[in-house]
Design a protein around this nucleic acid. Structure first.
Lengths: 350, 350
DNA sequence: ATGAAAGCGCTAACAA
DNA sequence: TTGTTAGCGCTTTCAT
């Protein structure tokens, strides 16, 4: 068996409880004995047993990460390593650990979350996605278990939920306005999975900007696709088959944009000369597209970092109220956007 | 407090030990009582306490994942979500959980691993990288703790280590030979971090193929870069500044290839007309480069899946010997390679 | 087939 | 300041 607190106690000629107090650095132990105990620990190579600790403590010092179902390709988005990096950073500072969900389907994930919560496997949970009708959110909320959402809850009836999000509505609106100012009138929107709240927020921002500009959004300019890569490509096929082709595209995700640009390239439609593109996220590779894409940097790392921050606060001070943190975004202008060529459509002079 | 085994026992009018036996589905309990107990569990919404279980059991049913230090951009490689997806799949089948390392530096990671091992936080560990001189590997080996490496140990003196790898030497050799057969003589190699074993294997495969073809490898055709994106771009600058430019590039990683192609594009060097490229990994986005890249599919998902498989075997049957699994790779020909244009260099007729 | 009780390694209330 | 002891929730002999 591994070496326990008793062994240390024996070696240092103190009681186990004293050792325990030394571990938690209790001020009620004299420096001399602390030293003695610490030495014994070093010598014996003592490491506290986690489960025993958690059991006695009712605190695991670990937080659970719930991903979207990993069967899906969604998971391959570099978004995830990056949020996790942010979460890791914060969590590590405060000596928390990370436990990962492994479920491949919604049902499996739901079960896992139940086990984490009821089995006291984690002290809190971060949801790495936000879906429209989500049992997990409802469950966590009912259980009053500490959790935070990266994104936002869709259901407004659920009060008191802490989340960390971007202002995705605003971002999409701004981006649309920008395209409008560049003279584009035919702006299409390629969204992700409609189950995700972010997709809805994007679309509404887009919609609003158009309407504000007096343009009636057209159904055939709005498409949604689940899959990241194929999705982008299919969307392009659909849109470019339209009698009146769009001159600008707003794409939900940088990875999708890669697919979009691939397909456009095959069709010999040039970016940005023939068509402008703006997308969202600004993951690491985004600047490596040819041409480098204009995109909205949503500060993924900070979404994670702040999420972890909020969660740990919530765990430590359960009485603290719910927080809603908005991480600022920023449009990164690169080379996929351009003023609408005047020969395309006669510009209104107004 | 949450509901415990005792509550269930009371409700079902049996002893706690009986409930425990029902949980582990012991054959020594009658079907009738099993039913009764199960019903009580359902009704009360019982979920076993994880830590209590682990403590009594000396088994946590969770495996630790050790990543390269996440401070580094390495972590952003879509490689990681994909291995994890493979690991998840296997691990989930057998009801294991995943615990993630969060260390940002080598020292932090080493400490974490120690805690995981000595603190009995996990039953086994998967190393998601393989570095040349690695304390973690040495430690795990000394402790005889169950672990597997994705990749391979560099130090041959460490016997009995289970690992799951590709034949990276062979892959690099084949790829070089392929380029040779396409008429290329000036083939450069852009490697990753030299601390990683895979980089060394790649380079040696490249080296061997050239020598076999009677070509002396040139130092200035071999460059290494740590960072994924910038790396690729800098490498191109270096190589294209050479008096005798390479006509083909072997790039360590698809993401790097994106950087390479970006830079090449800026220099108006056309792929594949002016220069051919082959890289490694075939992550999801690889097919979305323009033009789509020729790359070696290393079957990342399976690396993870098999790694998890081996580890769990190792945990369940500690007496089983070390295994070395080689996951097959496969060159995916897309559009970044081409026979050397004859006007570039006079081909030898031989 | 089932129950009683000890123990996994640690913490915390209570004593001293 | 330190020791004693009773749990934390579960598993597992050992009885019955």
């Amino acid at each position: 068996m591994a070496i326990t607190i008793k062994d240390v106690a024996k070696a240092a000629k103190v009681a186990p409880s004293t050792v325990s107090r030394v571990i938690s650095n209790s001020p009620r132990i004299s420096e001399k004995t602390k030293e003695r105990v610490r030495e014994a620990m070093k010598e014996l190579g003592y490491h506290p047993n986690f489960n025993a600790r958690s059991l006695a403590n009712k605190s695991t010092k670990t937080i659970g990460l719930v991903m979207p179902n990993s069967a899906n390709k969604t998971f391959q988005n570099p978004f995830f390593p990056e949020v996790i990096r942010g979460i890791s950073a914060k969590v590590h500072q405060l000596d928390y650990g990370l436990y990962l969900s492994t479920g491949q389907s919604e049902d499996e994930i739901f079960e896992e979350v139940q086990d984490m919560v009821q089995g006291r496997r984690v002290d809190g949970i971060i949801l790495l996605y936000s879906k429209v009708e989500d049992r997990v959110i409802k469950y966590l909320h009912e259980e009053q278990f500490p959790f935070v959402i990266i994104g936002r809850p869709y259901d407004d009836t659920l009060k008191g939920i802490t989340y960390v999000n971007n202002d995705n509505f605003k971002a999409a609106k701004t981006v649309t306005e920008y395209l409008l100012l560049l003279g584009h009138k035919c702006i299409a929107f390629i969204g992700g999975n409609l189950d995700f709240v972010v997709t809805i927020d994007h679309m509404q921002g887009y919609d609003r900007a158009l309407r504000n500009a007096g343009i009636e959004p057209r159904d055939d300019y709005i498409v949604f696709h689940e899959e990241l890569q194929e999705g982008g490509q299919e969307a392009v096929i659909d849109l470019m088959s339209l009698p009146e082709r769009p001159t600008a595209l707003i794409v939900a995700d940088d990875i999708m944009t890669f697919g979009v640009m691939r397909m456009l390239n095959e069709m010999e439609i040039h970016v940005p000369d023939d068509i402008s593109i703006i997308s969202f996220n600004n993951v690491m590779i985004s600047e490596l597209s040819t041409p480098p894409m204009t995109t909205v940097d949503i500060n993924i790392y900070n979404l994670g970092y702040e999420g972890a921050n909020c969660l740990i606060d919530l765990i430590l001070h359960p009485d603290i109220g719910a927080r809603k943190v908005i991480i600022p975004h920023k449009m990164i202008k690169r080379q996929t956007t351009q003023r609408l060529a005047t020969n395309a459509v006669a510009p209104e002079v107004n």
